[in-house]
């Protein structure tokens, strides 16, 4: 591990990190966008998104490698624009990161 920094600096950085993660979630869910905030929130928390976005979101959740040009074309063909595709990808990707942070907190809270 690295050279020990001052404890107060580390504590402050952890608090800032947690605030900035919340800011990121807020920007993705509530920032200006073409998808309604309720849809973006459903993607971030992993609940059912609109049917036309579900396949793309599931592939992003699975790592993103399985996404194809045809998946994007299908969303566009359903009447969404490129901005909606972008928002869907970002929200589903954020969900994967957030889920893993929750997993770690769950493990740390369990008795050792």
């Amino acid at each position: 591990m690295g050279a020990a920094p001052l404890d107060d600096d580390v504590t402050a950085a952890a608090a800032l990190r947690d605030r900035r993660f919340k800011d990121l979630v807020a920007a993705v869910v509530h920032g200006p966008g073409v998808l309604p905030s309720t849809v973006r929130e459903s993607l971030v928390v992993g609940s059912a998104p609109p049917a036309a976005l579900a396949d793309l979101a599931a592939k992003v959740a699975g790592g993103g490698l399985a996404v194809t040009d045809e998946d994007v074309a299908a969303v566009l063909g359903a009447g969404y624009g490129e901005d909606a595709v972008f928002e869907c990808v970002v929200a589903a990707a954020l969900a994967a990161g957030a889920a893993r942070l929750r997993t770690v907190e769950r493990l740390l809270a369990e008795p050792s």
């Binding site: 996404v67 990707a93 893993r100």
Partner: peptide
Amino acid sequence: IREAAHAAALLEIANRVNSAL
């Protein structure tokens, strides 16, 4: 452990955005 998890989470997000797009 939390710090490492956040470094991992950052890349979980970036990996998916890059691969999907």
